[in-house]
């Protein structure tokens, strides 16, 4: 049996005293792209941060490839092959594009610097530029490229196309699709429904820190009521 890339069981998280995640349960299967939807403040980013160890889970279990990683430190989780492309992209503005990539290179990754430059030619053109000089789309590509160099066995993307121009969105969606076809499972947080339905096999909707809906691509496309209720987009 192949291991389940990611499984969350009744995960609870807090920021100080505010109880944000109130029992999140979800799974990402081998080779799957799964989206996590929900209104602003629903707890999507907090879920990803809890999985990656930036926020401690107060209760519940997080299993990555069947290993319990609940409470492990972020760097250890990253080294075991779980990569997060954060909402703010986390580009180091003082480092050049190439340095941003170099510090992520890890032996054993399926992706090398050459692969990344072939896949993201724009980054190659701009490799001597400082990270702060990149456009939003380029920053997003850099952040994804960096995650790939880190050798992910699961990739988590937090709103990768937020605030980007439509042509750039298409470019990034195409790149995510390529990553999916390489077999790396993806947990995607996204507000752009078109992008979600295009990429994902399954969807979860989070509301007030709980999973309130789970459905396959087809079920979700057909279900206008749920979109209206939890996402505020009457379709």
């Amino acid at each position: 049996m192949t291991a389940t890339p990611l499984r969350l069981d009744e995960v609870h998280s807090y920021y100080g005293k505010s109880h944000i995640l109130q029992g999140v349960t979800l799974t990402v299967g081998p080779g799957e792209v799964v989206t996590l939807l929900g209104r602003n403040g629903a707890g999507k980013t907090t879920t990803l941060k809890t999985v990656s160890g930036l926020v401690r889970a107060a209760a519940g279990r997080v299993r990555f490839l069947d290993a319990d990683i609940t409470g492990a430190r972020a760097h250890a989780i990253a080294r075991s092959g779980l990569a997060l492309v954060p909402e703010d992209r986390g580009i180091f503005g003082l480092l050049t594009v190439e340095e941003n990539l170099k510090i992520a290179v890890r032996k054993g990754s399926l992706w090398t610097m050459d692969d990344v430059y072939r896949h993201f030619p724009r980054l190659k053109e701009r490799r001597r530029n400082g990270g702060a000089q990149l456009s939003g789309g380029e920053q997003q590509m850099l952040s994804i490229a960096r995650a790939l160099l880190n050798g992910p066995k699961l990739l988590m993307l937090d709103e990768p196309v937020e605030g980007l121009a439509p042509v750039v969105v298409d470019e990034i969606v195409a790149q995510i699709r390529d990553i999916r076809s390489s077999g790396i499972p993806i947990l995607l947080v996204e507000q752009n429904l078109a992008v979600c339905t295009e990429l994902a096999d399954r969807h979860y909707i989070l509301d007030l820190g709980r999973v309130v809906y789970e459905g396959s691509r087809e079920e979700f496309i057909a279900d206008a009521a749920v979109k209206d209720r939890y996402l505020g987009v009457g379709a």
Partner: peptide, 20 residues
């Protein structure tokens, strides 16, 4: 480079697998 990166975001440095 990691040290310079750390002066911008320690979280991101951890996310790349470095023990801050």
């Amino acid at each position: 480079a990691v040290v310079r990166a750390g002066s911008e975001s320690t979280d991101m440095v951890s996310l790349l697998g470095y023990d801050i």
